[in-house]
């Protein structure tokens, strides 16, 4: 693994967006991710579910190197993840991420939140960045809030701004880390609608979520994780109607009653 990560690979345009193979992660002595293997094709929508503490969030946070993995390999868009800071930045530019707690920048307006990265990372003229931002803010249906500060918006609105902010970087892959868990129930729908729309537009998506309705409607595959390992992967139909593994059955019985 040490040798392979030193080999320079030129990005090849192929069918695969993310390839994780034999990936392990430890927090100190604690083995949090065990032998994770997952290949995500372009345009594919993956929903990752599992009990809390099963390593779902940790896994997707490894994909854009918010967490470091210790063993195995992750290749994102043809670029292998190593400790090379340049490559990590390259990958992060192309992988959007939406967080459970929105993490909007409270000192910037909604519009500035959306234009910050395009201006400083993509070196885009301000006008163009603002046009793009307004385009995506319209798509998440809050163009009229552009000049407000995040603190003035509801949770659902904030999360939609967070989605728009990521989209402004025109990412090739979008990752969602429990995007609706911190929302009041009446706001969940507006965020999910936005995500469904995004899925219909053909975005490659990895969503950690407990919204099983969303999984049924949108996912190409559902990944079930437990105790740091991938236990079962299947199409939503099969997954919900015909779970194979004992732990999957137990989990589904707990959330679907």
């Amino acid at each position: 693994m040490a040798a392979s990560s030193l080999i320079k690979t030129t990005p090849v345009t192929n069918d695969i967006a993310v390839e994780i193979s034999g990936m392990h992660k430890w927090y100190g002595e604690f083995h949090v991710l065990r032998d994770v293997n997952l290949t995500v094709r372009r345009g594919e929508k993956i929903v990752i579910c599992g009990p809390s503490g099963s390593g779902k969030s940790t896994m997707i946070r490894c994909i854009n190197r918010l967490e470091e993995h210790q063993k195995g390999s992750i290749v994102v868009d043809g670029i292998p993840l190593t400790n090379d800071l340049k490559r990590i930045d390259e990958i992060r530019r192309d992988v959007g991420m939406v967080f459970q707690h929105f993490n909007l920048f409270p000192h910037l307006t909604v519009l500035e939140n959306c234009t910050l990265a395009p201006i400083w990372v993509r070196k885009m003229p301000q006008k163009q960045a603002e046009e793009i931002a307004m385009h995506y803010l319209s798509r998440v249906k809050i163009p009229d809030q552009a000049l407000k500060y995040p603190g003035q918006l509801s949770g659902g609105q904030q999360q939609r701004v967070a989605i728009a902010r990521s989209l402004c970087m025109s990412p090739k892959i979008m990752m969602f880390d429990e995007p609706t868990s911190a929302l009041d129930p009446e706001m969940v729908k507006e965020v999910l609608d936005t995500m469904v729309q995004l899925a219909q537009d053909g975005m490659t998506m990895l969503c950690v979520t407990h919204e099983m309705g969303f999984a049924r409607q949108v996912a190409d595959r559902v990944v079930f994780m437990d105790r740091g390992e991938i236990v079962e992967v299947n199409t939503p139909n099969e997954f919900f109607s015909n779970p194979q593994h004992e732990r999957t059955k137990l989990f589904l019985s707990q959330i679907l009653h």
Partner: peptide
């Protein structure tokens, strides 16, 4: 989360 969001955006 602020630093993470900034990093996730590619800053």
């Amino acid at each position: 989360g602020q630093t993470e969001a900034a990093n996730a955006l590619g800053l």
